[in-house]
């Protein structure tokens, strides 16, 4: 990693180190938008391409991880809207000086903490979130059958359960 705040001078080894450190997080974020594997791969690759084309504008190499995760989220959101048939611009990118500081939570250690909080939730939240997390390709209809819930209730219940889990985690980290 360069130390002169000149990210443009990064070499191949430093680049590969960046990939090793962040590609798992970027992939997880892209998939969290419900993208297929092919679309998620495009979103992740798009974020790396944005890094190449913005290399001269990166002034704080220490924040590259947050920038990569933020940019992946941006590309994933755009591809998700496109997949739903919305007309979206492919030319707007996030401000390179403003990576999302909350991106730091995309981390396996933090994820394990969240799993412990999940155990504090009652049913059906615990089982629903577990299924949703561990089976990214599962459809609501499949989850409904597994949990014996009306399929129409899966989306709203999932949103409510995730909101409760998020509140628990934020309370713990306050």
């Amino acid at each position: 990693m360069p130390t002169d705040n000149s990210f443009a001078t990064i070499d191949q080894a430093a680049w590969e180190d960046l990939v090793a450190r962040f590609d798992g997080r970027m992939w997880a974020v892209a998939r969290a938008f419900g993208l297929s594997a092919a679309d998620a791969a495009d979103a992740v690759q798009g974020a790396w391409l944005r890094l190449v084309e913005n290399a001269g504008a990166i002034r704080d190499p220490e924040r590259i991880g947050a920038w990569l995760v933020t940019t992946t989220r941006h590309e994933a959101a755009r591809l998700s809207r496109k997949a739903r048939g919305e007309v979206v611009s492919d030319l707007d990118v996030p401000d390179t000086t403003l990576p999302d500081p909350t991106a730091a939570v995309v981390d396996a250690d933090f994820g394990r903490q969240v799993w412990r909080r999940l155990d504090l939730l009652g049913e059906p939240c615990r089982s629903l979130i577990r299924l949703y997390v561990l089976h990214p390709e599962a459809r609501y209809a499949q989850i409904a059958v597994r949990l014996d819930l009306p399929v129409g209730s899966i989306g709203p219940t999932r949103a409510r359960c995730m909101a409760r889990l998020r509140a628990l985690v934020e309370e713990e980290n306050r």
Binding site: V19, M26, V44, A108, V133
Partner: peptide, 28 residues
């Protein structure tokens, strides 16, 4: 905290849906 980040962290914490090698190779 964004829901997508929470979900991503949960998957990483469980080792679920790891990044495919092809995606890492493309990034390199």
């Amino acid at each position: 905290m964004r829901e997508e980040y929470l979900l991503a962290a949960l998957r990483m914490g469980a080792g679920a849906d790891p990044v495919p090698e092809g995606v890492s190779a493309a990034a390199r």
